[in-house]
Amino acid sequence: MSAPVLEVAGLAKAFGGVRAVDDVSFTVVAGELLAMIGPNGAGKSTCFNMLNGQLSADAGAVRLLGRDVLGMKPRAIWRLGVGRTFQITATFTSMTVRENVQMALLSHRHGLGSLLSRASARHRNEADALLGRVGMREQGDRVCGVLAYGDLKRVELAVALANDPKLLLMDEPTAGMAPKERIELMALAASLAREREVAVLFTEHDMDVVFAHADRIIVLDRGRLIAQGEPAAVRADPQVQAVYLGSGAMFGHEVPA
């Protein structure tokens, strides 16, 4: 195993006396998909937002490739190579699919200060190449505001890849999608991660997606890490079943109904 891309140690955050994240430590290595699961309100989002720089932490350390990034702004963390997708897709709805990717490329190359050149002519081929990789090249000229939800998720993936990230943070990447689309999107993310040696950390409530694609799983409950390990081991953990997985009726059978 290679050196960890992301190292989280003793991370903690409290809101008004409630410990939202309490002494959480884990690592992710290049090419690995790590799933973070847990009940609603377990602290997953808080944890994510601290890794991403949107929230400050009370204690602990977050190291990206050995460099301490806690307290940096999201845009500074992005420049160090952290791509991100959101639970509810965040794209520039007034721009075309290609322009969305071009913006990320322009920002990566420090090209946003230009006042007189034409934005839509910059890094066009590179944007198309990225879109091709996620299967959205044909829709490059469509405006993001009119895209189907599943397609927007793919655009987000292309945008997240624009700065050659070392780490990809995906917050509920398949939320709101149909079962088959979910598996497909995650399969795409997994193959991209392995091919580009990107470490992926994702949260997810769809256990079919988690068990199909995660290399490892960590489980949060009330801010604390209660279990971690290979999918099969986590699935069999009685504590995880009690606080999160339940009876198992909500996932697993191939053809439900």
Binding site: K73, F86, M103, S117
Partner: peptide, 27 residues
């Protein structure tokens, strides 16, 4: 002309989705 330059696009990006703009390094 400025509206269609990278700068103008970045402004629109900030309007469309401040979250995404920040997440791709736009101040």
């Amino acid at each position: 002309r400025m509206l269609f330059s990278p700068f103008g696009y970045a402004l629109r990006a900030g309007r469309d989705s401040p979250l995404r703009a920040e997440a791709i390094g736009i101040d």
